[in-house]
Write a protein that binds this DNA or RNA. Sequence first.
RNA 1: GUCCCCGUAGCGCAAUUGGAUAGCGCGCAGCCCUGCGAAGGCUGAGGUUGCGAGUUCAAGCCUCGCCGGGGACGCCA
Length: 448
Amino acid sequence: MPARREKIQVEYVSINPTGPMHVGSGRNGAIGDTLANILIAAGHDVQREFYINDNGSQVHHFGASLFARYAHARGKDEPFPEDGYQGAYVAEMGKQFAAEYGEKFLQMPRAQAVREIGRAGIEIVVTALRATLEKMNVRFDNWFSERALFESGLFDQVFQSLKDKGLIYDQDDATWFAATKLGLEKDAVIIRSPNVIAEPDERPTYLAGDIAYVWNKLAVRAFDRAIYVWGADHHGDVPRVLAAAKALGLDVARITILIYQFVNLKRGGEMVRMSKRTGEFITLDELIDDVGADAVRFMLVSQSLNSTIDFDLEIAKQQSDVNPVYYVQYAHARIAGILTHAAELGASPQEGDVKLLTHAAELELIREMLRYPEIVELAATNLEPHHLAHYAIELAGTFHSFYKQCRVLSSDPADAALTRARLKLILAAKQVLANALGLIGVRAPETM
RNA sequence: GUCCCCGUAGCGCAAUUGGAUAGCGCGCAGCCCUGCGAAGGCUGAGGUUGCGAGUUCAAGCCUCGCCGGGGACGCCA
């Protein structure tokens, strides 16, 4: 148990809901969800959150792309936006909308149509994201809308607060956050110039949302701690958010932004170039269907956040041995098999006397099980989910070794007491394996 | 140019925050199923932890400098 039960929010995935997930987001989900599980196991009060970027320019871009595809599907001539989303899924959605809504979006002013179709599209994508994440056992307690930060007036409030502190200024028609006054190297635009974007509600940059959001987390909702899971490409944003939080009077020690490195997809050693434009794009969904949810999740969570993951499709598919998740699951299923057999024989772990467990392999297994709480605490303290995966492998190995050396079931009545003791032992081992796998979000199967 | 991550056995990765003989999986050379699941167990080969200095009783881990790989430095998300 921790010294103090903290109210912790873990926010993860939070990708733009404008397209399917790729493997990197899968890593984010595996990390975040596992971390949340671990913190709960360590005795904390945890809330899991997905931040939906449903505000501003990305909705516009997505909406404009979708509108164009929709219009085409209705036989109308509509120019496709230059920086639009070219993925086939957008065209597919455009067709769906054409069938479902008919002329509806063509009968309203274009700006309104783009906005409405964009929002409708995002809703559909979010539903799809949710389904993909569910497959991987990645769950959330709350889906938080970025737009709400602006519509509720919270952004205006923190903006004013920064302004009062002299940290906001206008230049080149844009509004800037004076990060240099807080020791950073550059200032950053917080509200874009009208020359760049016409629609007022699309002018706030991501930084604007991030600042309002951190205030919402720590001041409004009063979490003791806010943990973010971000990809390496966002590491440059960290100092700005922290600086802004500090300027608002928040204790930055309550904020932890975890940065994980990229996932490279490979096929037989060759890098698979992921490009939304060219269409050579392997979605997380396809990967899960191909490789299996347990294998994908285990792989993504078993490596330290600091190391880049090379995910080779050939290896992951063809040689399942390469993925130790089966090794661990096999240990669990093996125990389940013995227990089933034991029940058939009428043997029971009831009243098993652990004092009879004196074999070196038995003691080793007990020792390994006793490490579990220590590992959970280590992972919770350091926010390092990968320890659980490695521990699970080691526990499975210890069990397999025990299994070879010590027979559990015996038909000899003279062994009855030892059998009960060993049944008790493996029942415990099964539970610990299931617990470890549960934290990782991987199934603990009774049979394989 | 500045900043972040990585470099550990042929390959993929660990190493409980600086501690004793650096571990695990795959692969490789062998061995073990006429009794509980061989998706398993056992034995063996394979390491100057990228290179060079430094700090320390002690460095894979900390500091500095190189080399190599990846990422970030937008009125993009």
